[in-house]
């Protein structure tokens, strides 16, 4: 099936159709992210005073990712300009940097995500909090004969072959972090106050609640994962399309160069939009 297309600007719109198409698509994307940004405003303004978390995220990593994404934005537009100058070889080189940047961005993002899943908050029965990285958890089976030490698997779990399953219950956890008297102390650390990090061994009997900083932790983490997750999906999608045009799709440069340049331009417009979303996401989630 051949999808109808135009390569040259139409007389009535002054644009080739794909360009109108991508802008309509971007308009719908603005609404999609706009809805989530407005959810963010609702959650943020609606949070009781002093409860909105600050300095949860790694600012140097976020800054680095911002610079990586801005760099990929300039390479996209320079790659397109190279094609306009009929320099296919240079386009290939510059656009490969774009693809590399998208990969770096995703790797950094995945490190940040992994960090949040290893970051735990323990509410103790005496009301104090311990916040930090979970470094170990010890489990005991029902007859207290077998002791197992490995990653956190909840307050209890069952394991073993069918029929001979054993139930293990948590004995203690070790958290490398700091102790705090209130949530506010964790969410709004005072300027200049540095918490000394050390190992806390907490007995299961002392634990009132334990959980990591996944999307379920609080509304801030929920909107953080929703916004950055959706954005990361856009990075993946954009990189796939740009990669396809750069690699297997490049045969078109020989058969229909103008249409090929249009493809590069349209995929570039999408990429700039992804960069644009990040320009707002970074200060809103990391700094404010």
């Amino acid at each position: 099936m051949d999808i109808p297309y135009t390569v040259h600007p139409r007389a009535d719109t002054g644009l080739y159709n794909a360009k109108v198409g991508i802008w309509l698509f971007l308009a719908s994307e603005v609404m999609l992210f706009g809805a989530l940004f407005s959810s963010y405003i609702l959650l943020r303004v609606g949070a009781p005073d002093g409860t909105w978390p600050h300095s949860v995220l790694n600012i140097p990593l976020g800054t680095l990712n911002t610079i990586v994404l801005i760099s990929s934005s300039i390479t996209v537009v320079l790659a397109w300009a190279s094609l306009k100058l009929n320099n296919f070889a240079r386009y290939r080189v510059i656009q490969s940097i774009t693809l590399l940047c998208s990969l770096i961005f995703l790797v950094i993002k995945s490190f940040e995500y992994r960090d949040k899943f290893a970051h735990y908050q323990v509410v103790q029965k005496d009301g104090k909090y311990v916040d930090g990285h979970l470094t170990g958890s010890v489990y005991l089976d029902a007859d207290k004969k077998t002791r197992e030490e490995h990653g956190f698997r909840g307050l209890s779990f069952t394991e073993g072959p069918k029929g001979a399953q054993k139930k293990f219950t948590l004995e203690s956890v070790t958290v490398n972090g700091f102790e705090a008297k209130s949530l506010a102390e964790i969410n709004n650390p005072k300027v200049g106050v540095h918490h000394e990090h050390k190992d806390f061994k907490i007995a299961a009997a002392q634990i009132k609640k334990i959980g990591n900083y996944g999307p379920w932790h609080n509304t801030y983490m929920a909107i953080y994962f929703t916004l950055t997750g959706l954005h990361a999906l856009h990075v993946i999608g954009g990189a796939l399309v740009i990669g396809y045009i750069w690699g297997p799709g490049a045969a078109m440069w020989k058969t229909d160069p103008e249409r090929y340049i249009n493809r590069v331009e349209v995929s570039g417009l999408f990429w700039h939009f992804v960069d644009l979303v990040w320009i707002f996401l970074f200060p809103v989630l990391y700094l404010l």
């Binding site: 719109t13 002054g14 644009l15 360009k19 109108v20 802008w23 309509l24 308009a27």
Partner: peptide, 8 residues
């Protein structure tokens, strides 16, 4: 072009 401004 005007059309894109219209959309935006």
């Amino acid at each position: 072009k005007k059309m894109i401004y219209g959309i935006l």
